Computed example of a mutant assay.
Amino acid sequence: MAGRRLELSPREFGLLECLLAVPGRVIPAEELLERVWDEAADPFSSAVKHAVHRLRAKLGDPPAIETVREAGYRLRPS
């Protein structure tokens, strides 16, 4: 992935930026929704889950984003 250009949507970029700001910390989906989406976003939607899925696909293998069950998402330690 090093040196490869990624085409990210504004939301994907926002997600990655949030995760990079606190490496290793689990960020709840609700917090990501508040920080990356607008105030009209439905807190019961699966928007974060789908955006993380798309971002993982663009980042490639091994997956850089880890789902912490019932807690949120974090960047995997390198």
Rank of each mutant, 00 (worst) to 15 (best):
A2D: 05
A2Y: 05
G3Q: 00
R4Y: 08
L8E: 06
L8Q: 08
P10H: 08
E12L: 11
E12R: 13
C18S: 04
C18H: 00
C18G: 00
C18T: 00
L19R: 01
A21M: 00
V22I: 05
P23G: 00
G24A: 09
G24T: 07
G24M: 06
V26W: 07
I27L: 12
P28V: 03
P28S: 14
E30F: 02
E30S: 13
E31N: 11
E31W: 05
E31C: 13
E31M: 14
R35Q: 08
W37M: 08
W37H: 07
D38M: 01
E39I: 06
D42I: 08
D42S: 09
P43E: 03
P43S: 13
F44S: 14
S45E: 14
A47F: 15
A47R: 11
H50E: 12
V52K: 06
V52W: 00
R54L: 13
R54Q: 14
R56L: 02
R56Y: 03
R56D: 01
A57Y: 01
K58P: 04
L59R: 07
L59Q: 07
G60Q: 09
G60Y: 09
P62D: 08
V68L: 12
R69A: 10
A71M: 02
A71N: 00
G72Q: 10
Y73I: 05
R74Y: 11
L75S: 04
L75I: 02
R76G: 04
